[in-house]
Design a protein around this nucleic acid. Structure first.
Length: 275
DNA sequence: GATCAGGTAAAGT
DNA sequence: ACTTTACCTGAT
């Protein structure tokens, strides 16, 4: 157990922010999160957080995962004081941070997300994890199994039939192809490593050239899987927002290099704001 | 029973 | 180059 005070972090909001699909709310309180092969339970009370791991693990993994080195006050302060809509969005989403999730997991997750709704995305990802992910039994509890996101090898090995019954629909072939590309069968490719080294523009182009990855998904992977916070994914919600509040275009130049963070707040505001 | 959902590939102008 | 259309499928 490790207790710490953190500002600008709201787990409930992050869980509903659309950037992650498997932060699981626990029956009593708190969330369970898996990342990079690690599992943790987190309980939040205001700005006090209780992590179920040791201090060492918090600092080596979760501090980075929750992007705690970024000062979101700076970002809020940089917003155009004339831009009432964006100010409201930033206030509504206070506590949302861009998680540093696993690249491979984000690639598959956002392929699943295309032309799809959130509850079905969740179900598909969870079913995929249960079928191919390693099973963890936190604290030796055999009744509360939790699965890691599966490896590319595991998915590639199962073939197209192995993806049946997960509600993936026509996306199954995209997933299989990328699983093969990222599996140890193509170890010499080191494609994921290449992506990680690349700058935003290069990574975007690499992703876009893949079967099943278009502009929107490529940008989501850049933003959530590579932490290129300048990426600005335009989905149907953001498109509506731009049309309504920014008919002359969103001021990307003003927010160059981190517009994706603002995108995330606008998205959150649209889905969770009072309107 | 349509229509929609955090789009993309492929075909058609 | 720009504009349609088909596509899996659970939810509403």
């Amino acid at each position: 157990m490790f207790e710490i005070q953190i500002r600008d972090l709201d787990l409930d909001k992050i869980a509903r922010s659309g950037q992650c699909f498997r932060m699981k709310p626990l029956d009593q309180e708190g969330y369970e999160v898996t990342a990079r092969g690690n599992y943790v339970k987190i309980v939040q009370r205001g700005d006090e957080f209780l992590f179920s791991c040791r201090e060492e693990e918090f600092y080596s993994i979760w501090k980075d995962y929750f992007d705690l080195d970024t000062d979101y006050d700076d970002i809020r302060r940089s917003v155009d004081p004339q831009d009432a809509y964006l100010l409201a969005a930033m206030e509504c989403g206070r506590g949302v941070r861009i998680l540093k999730q696993d690249l491979w997991e984000m690639i598959i997750t956002f392929i699943v997300s295309q032309n799809n709704n959130i509850s079905r995305i969740r179900n598909s990802i969870e079913a995929l994890c249960e079928r191919y992910g390693s099973c963890l039994h936190p604290e030796g509890m055999t009744d509360t199994a939790c699965y890691l996101f599966p490896s590319a090898d595991a998915i590639a090995k199962g073939g197209l039939e192995g993806l049946n019954g997960l509600g993936l629909g026509y996306r199954d072939k995209y997933i299989l192809e990328l699983a093969r590309k990222c599996s140890s069968q193509y170890l010499e490719l080191q494609w994921l490593e290449e992506l990680k080294q690349a700058d935003y523009e290069t990574a975007y182009k690499l992703l876009l050239s893949e079967y099943g990855i278009g502009k929107k998904v490529a940008d989501c992977i850049c933003l959530f899987g590579l932490h290129h916070v300048g990426a600005f994914p335009i989905d149907t919600h953001i498109r509506q927002i731009l049309k309504l509040y920014y008919p002359n275009g969103f001021p990307l130049e003003r927010y160059q290099g981190y517009a994706g963070i603002l995108q995330q707040y606008m998205f959150y505001y649209k889905l969770n704001g009072s309107k």
